[in-house]
Structure formats: C-alpha cells, structure tokens
Design a protein around this nucleic acid. Structure first.
Lengths: 152, 152
DNA sequence: CTTTATAATTCAGCCCGTTTAACTATTTAG
DNA sequence: CTAAATAGTTAAACGGGCTGAATTATAAAG
C-alpha cells in the first residue's frame, strides 16, 4: 500500500503544483497588502456565495468574534459587503464587492499563472493524455467524504 | 488562448487539490500549535537541506531579522538546530532536528492524506492513464523558469 | 593593517489575528 | 408572554510576526 507508484506520483505532482501556487499567492498577498487569512476568506465567500459571519469563521477555523473583526477590516477596505438578512435580522449577509471580485480574480490569476506558462510547452497529444487523467481525478475526488468543518 | 480546455481542466484540478491540501495542512498546523510560516520554514529547510538564516528569510519573503526571530522560536521548540558554519563563522547552519523531521513527516501525511483515500477509488487502468499524464506534467514543469525569490 | 561588506542578532515599536467575556438584538420554544 | 437559544459585535489582553536601526562578529578587499 505504501509502495503504490500511483500514489507516489500523484503526491509528487501535488507537492510541486502546490509549491508553485503557494509561492505565487503569497507574493500576491504581500503585493496587495492582504494576509492569507484575508484571501482565504475572500476565496471562500466567492465559492459559496453569500453567507453569514459565523460561517466564514467556521471555515477558517476561528471564533465568530475573530471572523467579525476580520470581516470588519475587509469592509473598511471595501472588499466585502455586510448587509442585514431580511429573513433573520440577527444574520449579516456577507458578499464580495466589485473590488473584492477584482482581488479574487487577480489572486486566481497570480496563483495559477504558472499553468498558462506550462501549457505552452505541451503538444496537443500530450494535452490529450493529461486531460484524460485529470478528468478521472476530478470526477473521483468529488466522491470523497467531505472533510468536516470543525471548530475545536 | 483563454479558451484552452486543457488549461481550464488543469486549473480546475489544481484548485481542487489545493483546497483539499490547504484545509488539511491548516488543520494540522492548528493541531500542533505551529503557524503556516513555521511549517513553511520547516518544509523549505527540509527541501534544500542545510542553509543559513538569511536564506530562509529570503524564501519566506521576510527580512533576516524576522527569520532570525522565527528560527529562534523553532530552536526553543527543538524543531531545528542552529550551528556555526566552520567554513564561515558568520553563518549559522540551519537544520531539522529529529522532532523537526517528525513534524515534517506528519505535516506531509496530513496534507496529502486525501490522496491515499482517493487512490482507493481508482482502477488500475485509470491509474495508468493518470500516471501517464502526470509524468508529462512533472517533466515539463521542471523546465519552467524558476520564479525569482525576491525581497521587496 | 584598515576598510568595507556580509551574517546574524537584538531591541523597540507596530499591526494583525486570536481568545474570552460581556453585551445587544433577534428568533424560537415552552 | 417568558425563557432560552442564536448571530453578531465590542473590548481587553496576549502573542506572533514584521520592520528598521543599531550591534557584534567575521570575512574579504584595498
């Protein structure tokens, strides 16, 4: 089980791609003056659409107090919008502003720019082979048990 | 160029795999009381072997003062060793302790554990297809221009 | 030998992210 | 209607991580 060459290769690729992406996103974060937590929140808010303060905190693994304060800073920077939920006025709906969306797009581009570069060095037949494999992975990974989002 | 389905698919997979890995490593960091910077330093030290304080800082994108302080905390936690370089006594050689190696191994395992799980849902022929693609990627990515490690 | 450059450390000061606890507002349960 | 639960905010306190500047030690250049 430990000697599965498939697992070894997939881990190697994951390691390499993550190293590239992480370096790029860290550089971008520094460039635009946001912390990784900030970017993580922005990415999460985009991915799940509108949500509440506590939920953002749960995803980041922090208390609702911490989330509230961080979101407050993001509101001040005009990156997110915090509006009252008409159905339950205890809840604040968190959403990205236009500027927030721009940061998100730029962040994605910064993080994955190396992939564009990589693609230029590949022939069409190589791309075919790779796509076949990736589609299998993408299909199967969606069936994985969803990791639980816990607060300690 | 923007509509290259290959780029789209590869980016999608990178996004998904990074989300899994990041969640797991964040959870692990929290669990063992280390920051992501700490883990990043440990990973880097392991990857390039022994190195100096300033170099670690450069990789993390911080000043040598910041690196010195962070490494100091890691020394106190018995995660790294800081010894004088006999060839140039200005330099301190940074290396992982046994405990540091253990944290590294556990971190890798935590981060990539989902890959083991994923592998169980794949047939041998599917694995073959995927490996073929990954090997192309791994080969080509090594030819990418190395991102410059800069200090602003 | 003297000067200059380099590696690392220390210190003061700042900001960010976090927690706990207290508090307000609102909703839900009885 | 009242009591309990929930969502969010606020405040105080702590520590991490960062910077810039000063310091020490060593090496390299002249």
């Amino acid at each position: 089980m430990k000697a599965d060459p498939f697992v070894y290769t997939l881990k190697e690729w994951t390691e390499v791609s993550m190293r590239h992406s992480m370096r790029n996103i860290l550089h971008y974060a520094r460039e635009c003056g946001l912390s990784m937590s900030n970017l993580g929140a922005i990415f999460h808010i985009h991915r799940i659409g509108s949500c509440g303060v506590t939920e953002v905190g749960a995803h980041l693994g922090v208390t609702s107090a911490a989330a509230s304060q961080m979101l407050d800073r993001l509101v001040q920077q005009d990156l997110i919008l915090r509006t009252e939920d008409p159905d339950d006025r205890r809840v604040k709906q968190i959403a990205l502003t236009e500027k927030g969306h721009r940061i998100l797009e730029e962040g994605l581009h910064a993080r994955q720019g190396w992939i564009d570069e990589l693609a230029q060095n590949l022939s069409d037949s190589e791309k075919e082979t790779i796509i076949s494999g990736l589609n299998i992975l993408i299909d199967k990974v969606s069936h994985l048990a969803l990791p639980i989002e816990v607060r300690s």
